[in-house]
Lab assay of single mutants.
Amino acid sequence: MGSVRTNRYSIVSSEEDGMKLATMAVANGFGNGKSKVHTRQQCRSRFVKKDGHCNVQFINVGEKGQRYLADIFTTCVDIRWRWMLVIFCLAFVLSWLFFGCVFWLIALLHGDLDTDYKDDDDKSKVSKACVSEVNSFTAAFLFSIETQTTIGYGFRCVTDECPIAVFMVVFQSIVGCIIDAFIIGAVMAKMAKPKKRNETLVFSHNAVIAMRDGKLCLMWRVGNLRKSHLVEAHVRAQLLKSRITSEGEYIPLDQIDINVGFDSGIDRIFLVSPITIVHEIDEDSPLYDLSKQDIDNADFEIVVILEGMVEATAMTTQCRSSYLANEILWGHRYEPVLFEEKHYYKVDYSRFHKTYEVPNTPLCSARDLAEKKYILSNANSFCYENEVALTSKEEEEDSENGVPESTSTDSPPGIDLHNQASVPLEPRPLRRESEIGSRR
């Protein structure tokens, strides 16, 4: 089982795998120059863009038009607004034209077009017409509009002379109601789609790998820009990579689940303020055997998904993003964004995407760390350097704002901070800030 798991979770494809794949392509008759073999020097295209759209195009789909027309309502909801407006206008105009032609044909076959009612006051002739005051196609078209929109100006009306005319008036009224219901329903469904809710759900630009509770963890940050909550919010993550099976089958995008606390339930989050999602790199993680150097040379993509129900409509929305291997910062942490004021908490989104480097973060893999092949620094050293990194950030910001350097908390000259780390230190809580992250 261990060997199978290692093969499945191998992220960085070796040169031997690339040569094996190329040999397979030639042997199977696919070596026509169009096949692409992804190596370390040639990274694959992003499968999920940063804005959440999937970078996929469908080609050679059989009976595409028929399949889309069979699900016309979903098609109308998914198309762009400009095409929705075109369909909206065409549906009414074509129905008016169709029934206008029908009423014109009825008048033509009944002989109503030969009668001039402007110079004739004989009401008996008017009563013999199928539709009064309809003696041309324009008049028939206007009567069709008046019937379907129930305008009723009063000059044109159907008589009991022709039952077919009466039937067409009733039929057009029913068709008009159906068109109204369909168009209004599609427009309302399109307006109520929770897709735009994703514009106020954000992911951090970069993911980070750092120590948390004595273990290497992959972390990324999510935030909600609205005050309205995302009900039943939960997160998922998958690692996408290519691999070759033991039988020699090439899988271009193998999807591997990344555990973010599904078993323990901590994948469900209360997204009021930005939260750091934590994936513990343990023996079940696809990143277990990867060191910093392996991450730098790897070719994979981590897709992160945030799902929840919109509070206003109770409709489920899904926000997506992805991180390539070069977008994962090893040995970094996110800057705090949640600050405790006197009577409330304040979230500073200008710090949302910012990170700071944490010294002495192990550069080895989580496996080597678990097997004690890498000796961690003293816990006080880690905490102290973590505090120094934050303090230096604040000093830089104070210097930019014009604060005198004498007010900063610099260490005395001639003292090495790293050498001082081995000395037991008193706890130094942050002056006014605390970061709330997901705790395992």
Rank of each mutant, 00 (worst) to 15 (best):
S411V: 12
D119C: 01
Q57L: 04
V134L: 05
A165I: 03
E396N: 10
K125F: 15
T147S: 02
V158P: 10
F92Y: 04
F88W: 07
N419K: 08
S173E: 02
S273G: 12
T317C: 14
L287T: 01
G214K: 14
D213R: 15
R44N: 13
H110G: 02
F203K: 00
F155E: 05
E394R: 09
I183L: 13
Q318K: 03
T245W: 06
A421H: 13
R5I: 09
E405I: 10
T150Q: 05
M168N: 05
W96E: 02
N259T: 10
L142I: 02
K215L: 11
I11Q: 07
I179S: 12
L287Y: 01
I375E: 14
N378E: 14
G414T: 12
V278M: 07
H234N: 13
H110A: 03
G331P: 00
D114E: 05
E307W: 05
E385T: 04
I178H: 07
N297R: 08
L225D: 10
G65E: 04
G248H: 06
S242N: 13
T316A: 12
D114V: 12
V61W: 08
L430W: 07
L142D: 02
F167N: 02
F167H: 00
S422G: 05
N7P: 10
Q57I: 04
V423N: 12
Y323M: 09
V170T: 07
D180Q: 09
E341G: 04
L201G: 12
L90K: 07
V86H: 09
N60P: 10
T245S: 10
Y349R: 14
A139W: 00
K346C: 05
I87M: 14
A70V: 03
E311P: 13
Q66V: 09
K241Q: 10
V61F: 07
C177H: 15
D17C: 07
V347P: 00
V187W: 09
G261K: 11
C217D: 03
Q66D: 05
I375N: 11
Y345I: 11
F98W: 01
D289R: 04
C157G: 06
T409V: 08
E433M: 09
K64Y: 05
N55I: 03
H418P: 06
N378G: 12
F182E: 03
P427Y: 08
C319R: 04
H353M: 04
G248A: 08
A27G: 14
C383M: 14
S365K: 01
S350R: 13
N7E: 15
V77C: 13
Y117Q: 01
K34N: 14
Q420N: 09
L417M: 06
D289C: 07
E247Y: 06
D116H: 12
H332M: 06
Q293H: 08
M188H: 12
G185F: 05
I328P: 01
F203R: 01
F352Y: 03
N259W: 03
G18W: 03
K292M: 12
E280D: 09
I256W: 12
A27D: 08
S291M: 02
Q57E: 14
E396W: 05
A189Q: 14
V56A: 13
G223R: 14
H229G: 06
C177T: 07
Q66G: 07
R431T: 13
H110P: 01
A139Q: 07
F352D: 01
F262N: 05
N360T: 13
T150K: 07
F155R: 07
I87A: 15
L271C: 09
H418L: 14
A107K: 00
E327P: 01
D299T: 07
N7C: 06
V278D: 00
I251S: 14
V126H: 05
P404V: 09
P163G: 13
T200D: 06
P424I: 11
H343I: 07
M191F: 05
S35A: 12
A25F: 06
E400M: 11
F382W: 06
S10Y: 03
R40L: 07
F143L: 05
V202W: 06
R197F: 10
G152N: 03
K373M: 08
Y374H: 04
D296R: 04
L69W: 12
C76M: 08
E405R: 09
S204F: 01
R431V: 13
L105E: 01
I375F: 03
K393W: 05
K50A: 07
K64M: 03
I184K: 08
I269E: 11
K128G: 13
S406W: 09
S322K: 01
E395M: 07
A186H: 07
C130K: 02
L239V: 12
D160N: 02
Q255C: 08
P424A: 11
V222Y: 02
R428C: 13
D294R: 09
H229N: 09
R156N: 02
M19P: 09
K193Y: 07
A107S: 05
T409Y: 09
Y68L: 10
Q420V: 11
F58W: 09
G176P: 03
F270K: 06
P359D: 14
Y374D: 14
S285K: 02
K215A: 10
E249Y: 06
G331A: 06
V169F: 06
L94H: 01
W220N: 09
A27H: 12
L108H: 15
A91N: 14
L230C: 08
A129H: 03
Y117R: 01
T150F: 03
L21V: 10
L94D: 01
L306P: 02
R80P: 12
I266H: 10
D284Y: 12
E371C: 04
F300Y: 00
F262G: 05
E307R: 06
V126E: 04
D289I: 07
Y334A: 02
G331N: 01
R431S: 15
K342P: 11
E327A: 00
V187A: 07
A25E: 14
I145Q: 03
G65L: 14
E433S: 07
L230I: 12
I415T: 13
E335L: 07
S434M: 10
G18H: 07
E161L: 01
E335H: 05
F47C: 13
H110T: 01
E385L: 07
V388R: 12
D121W: 14
R367W: 01
V235R: 01
C177S: 12
Q42R: 10
L306N: 02
S273M: 06
Y9W: 10
F167D: 02
L94A: 10
K50Y: 02
I302Y: 00
S228T: 14
E387D: 12
H332D: 02
S291Q: 05
E280W: 14
K354F: 08
E435R: 08
V48P: 00
I415S: 10
V86R: 03
K196F: 12
G261Y: 10
W96I: 14
A25P: 15
K125Y: 15
L90C: 08
I106P: 00
L253Y: 13
R80D: 15
E249D: 07
T75S: 11
S132E: 11
R156S: 00
A210W: 03
R212V: 08
T39E: 13
G414W: 04
E397C: 08
C54V: 09
A165Y: 01
S381E: 10
L369N: 02
I295H: 10
Q57K: 12
V235Q: 00
A233T: 10
S365V: 00
S246V: 10
G154W: 02
C217I: 05
K34R: 12
V235N: 00
P413C: 10
T149W: 02
V158L: 04
V222K: 00
S350A: 11
S95L: 15
G248M: 07
N28Q: 08
M24T: 12
V37D: 14
Q420H: 08
N28D: 15
V187N: 06
L21R: 10
L218Q: 01
Y250V: 14
K393I: 06
T149E: 05
L230S: 11
D416C: 11
V222G: 02
V158E: 02
S3P: 05
E146K: 03
F88S: 06
K125E: 12
N386A: 14
L142Q: 05
E395W: 03
W220G: 03
D51M: 06
G176E: 03
N28C: 04
Y374W: 08
R5M: 04
F300W: 11
I275M: 11
L287K: 01
V337D: 03
K373S: 14
A129W: 04
A366E: 00
A25G: 12
S228W: 13
W81N: 02
L105Q: 02
D368A: 07
K195M: 05
M309V: 11
E340S: 10
F143Y: 04
S228E: 06
G65I: 15
A366C: 01
V126R: 02
H234T: 11
E400A: 11
A298Q: 11
I79Q: 05
G111K: 03
S408A: 10
V4G: 08
R80G: 04
D122I: 01
A192T: 11
W330S: 01
F58C: 14
P163R: 03
C89F: 04
S173K: 06
E15P: 08
T149P: 02
S246I: 08
V131S: 01
Q42N: 10
